[in-house]
Design a protein around this nucleic acid. Structure first.
Lengths: 233, 233
DNA sequence: GCTGTAATTCACCGATTGAAGAATTATGGT
DNA sequence: ACCATAATTCTTCAATCGGTGAATTACAGC
């Protein structure tokens, strides 16, 4: 149940790393020892992107090492060879997802331009960008996966907390022009997270089918208040 | 890893059903056939509450039938005997959790009193009640578990959607004194869910340690707006 | 007292999983 | 040429899982 069966062949191409094919697929790939071909033909990257793909779509528990290996087109043992156990692999993948993010930079950028914008408020602009990012980019999908996992997997939970607290508490926070930044950011995070859960994880109507712009205009003022208005905290 | 090992004996009493001990524990419980004692000594209830306890704390996937049986103090086969497979058991448990809820009634009750309240707004009052409910009652804990699971388990997700949409869309909705009730309720739900996630699932500071009253006063106005102010939807 | 049925445990099964050992093949440095 | 080592697969293990068939015991109706 819930299985979906990935089934040997044809595993929707174009999911993993952007470059078309890492291996010509002409080599039978079924020979014992080290494969011929230049140095940088290692399966390391294949495994990493296969793992990212699998974890992103199926969470932590449901993903098997064998499935990752199948997608990477290699033997399961290779995963243990390069990374350690499943935990270590997952941690590596999750960190890479978080590490790739430029969402915060984007936010700060928008914040700097505050005031000299058109009709839209910062909250609205932020929401628009956030939703677009989450729903259209590959990285956004990966984030969605992290969120899906966070409830059950402690590794993910810690990473999420680190993302919201740690990664956000650096010099970046000082750049945001408001007071009590940590508290305000957590409030913003709570609304963003809730929105994403209801809209993209649970897919509750009518929010799920609502255009991004409408959602942004509706919820934007909430973020504005969390960010810049006087709060009783 | 992440195992916790429930380990044979002493499994923190007082978790399942409220009545102290369903079985004297004097009977060795290790005999083959039907146990002696009056008719209503069946393990049915034991299993149900054990399952609720396990599912609430460990989600769906991580919980094994064997663990439930261990906690219920019976053989795993009995679970299959009374309920069918794991799915059926879980569905039964989840439905019972949702069925027990009176949160919506409470909300409507508060809504009816709107206007003739003291200083606090409805949003603030609602939040105060919601947080208290979630963080202090046994049922609230069960809900938290459902939320934790919702990201990964389709059964739970469907139940959550049913809860937010189905259970909420009945006659109850008509009792709420505002327009576009469905849309407004989903917005409220998004903020409530996000708050619960950040505060009680991820436990992100400073929200996690913030007193309920402070949180309510801070986020309450958001709910007020979602409920009663004019929205661009 | 006999008997059908409800309640319970025991002993397994097949599948799957993460992991480790050993074998095999190519590469690169000397 | 030679050899350490990197890269890869094959085989296998021990554990665990959900689930099933059959045995065992008590109760309830006759």
């Amino acid at each position: 149940m819930t299985e979906e069966s990935i089934q040997g062949g044809q595993i929707l191409e174009g999911a993993g790393k952007p470059d078309g094919d890492a291996r010509p697929a002409s080599t039978p790939r079924h020979r014992r020892g080290r494969p011929p071909g230049g140095a940088e033909s290692s399966a390391y990257e294949d495994i990493l992107s296969a793992a990212r793909y699998e974890f992103s779509r199926n969470g932590y528990d449901k993903v098997t090492m064998r499935a990752i290996a199948r997608r990477a087109g290699c033997d399961p043992k290779l995963i243990h060879y390069y990374f350690g156990g499943k935990d270590e692999l997952f941690t590596k993948v999750a960190r890479s997802i978080i590490g790739d993010s430029h969402l915060i930079d984007f936010f700060i950028d928008q914040d700097a331009k505050r005031g000299m914008k058109d009709g839209r408020s910062l909250g609205t602009t932020l929401l628009r960008a956030f939703l677009t990012f989450m729903e259209t980019t590959e990285l956004g999908e990966a984030y969605l996966a992290l969120i899906r996992n966070a409830g059950q997997n402690e590794h993910v939970r810690d990473l999420m907390v680190a993302l919201v607290q740690g990664e956000l508490n650096g010099d970046q926070l000082k750049a945001i022009r408001t007071d009590k930044v940590e508290k305000r950011m957590v409030l913003v995070g709570s609304q963003l997270l809730g929105l994403i859960m209801v809209r993209d994880v649970f897919r509750v109507e009518p929010l799920a089918s609502m255009p991004v712009a409408t959602v942004a205009r509706t919820i934007g003022p909430t973020l504005d208040r969390y960010l810049y208005e006087k709060l009783p905290i």
